[in-house]
């Protein structure tokens, strides 16, 4: 089984700084995003899922409602698969609330606290769904869980390290639970992009994070390189 943990906006430097032992698996490193003009979430995940740069296609239409067909993604190569709330595929409408709260903050109609509440509510729900599916006893060939909390909270708080550490610890903990439950699975952790501080706020950085629990050093892969690794079950020469 392959388990993919997609952590939006997970920053390589923070993972190291906060000593997130479970996120730092056997091999881990940075992903190369230089093929994209801007690190946009929907574009990056869609490109990850398909192995093709989807930037032009997505920017010609509406960003947040963009949906790939199953046939275009690596899931098409597996019999039993489970995908949770992944941008560009089955990203939930619930996330609109996050963007609304973000706008409200900048328009001085809402606070950071209101915004965080929406993010944590979504996170709780998704976490529950994910573990319910993972522990359901179904024999999946591939599972992909997507957690947006680090990115969402990061936009208004990435500069507050002590706050971000709590969130990174949470993601580290989720990873530990997955690893313990499925010691034989191949676990790939990826982010779409990292983040950088702008005062208390957080901008997207132009690289991402990857981490793998098997003995394959992926070096500095492109977002679109994962597709073929996944469909070949990482059986390529390293």
């Amino acid at each position: 089984m392959i388990i993919i943990l997609g952590f939006d906006g997970l920053e390589y430097e923070y993972v190291k700084k906060f000593g997130c032992r479970n996120l730092m698996q056997k091999h881990f490193g940075k992903t190369d995003l230089s093929q994209f003009s801007e690190p946009r979430t929907i574009v990056l995940w869609s490109s990850f899922l398909t192995g093709k740069n989807q930037e032009k296609r997505i920017l010609s239409g509406d960003l947040w409602t963009f949906k790939l067909k199953k046939e275009e993604t690596f899931f098409n190569h597996f019999k039993n698969f489970y995908v949770l709330d992944t941008p560009g595929y089955n990203y939930s409408e619930d996330h609109k609330k996050e963007r609304d709260a973000l706008r409200a903050f900048f328009e001085k109609k809402g606070t950071v606290e209101n915004y965080d509440e929406v993010a944590f509510e979504n996170h709780k729900k998704i976490k529950e769904q994910f573990f319910n599916a993972l522990n359901s006893g179904t024999n999946f060939d591939i599972v992909m869980g997507y957690f947006g909390v680090a990115d969402v909270v990061g936009h208004l708080s990435f500069g507050l390290e002590e706050k971000m550490k709590i969130i990174y610890n949470e993601l580290d903990e989720i990873t530990r639970k997955v690893q313990e439950k499925h010691p034989d699975a191949t676990i790939l952790i990826v982010s779409d992009h990292g983040m950088k501080k702008i005062g208390r706020f957080g901008d997207h950085s132009n690289y991402a994070f990857w981490s793998l629990n098997i003995d394959k050093n992926l070096g500095n892969p492109k977002t679109t390189d994962f597709y073929s690794m996944i469909i070949n079950n990482f059986k390529m020469s390293s």
Binding site: P39, R40, T41, W64, R99, F106, I198, G199, D203, H204
Partner: peptide
């Protein structure tokens, strides 16, 4: 300082498609 950063972030988040 925060006013400046906030203005910058608003601009950036627009570019990234959030707003």
């Amino acid at each position: 300082a925060q006013d400046k950063e906030q203005a910058y972030m608003m601009q950036k988040l627009r570019t990234l498609g959030y707003m």
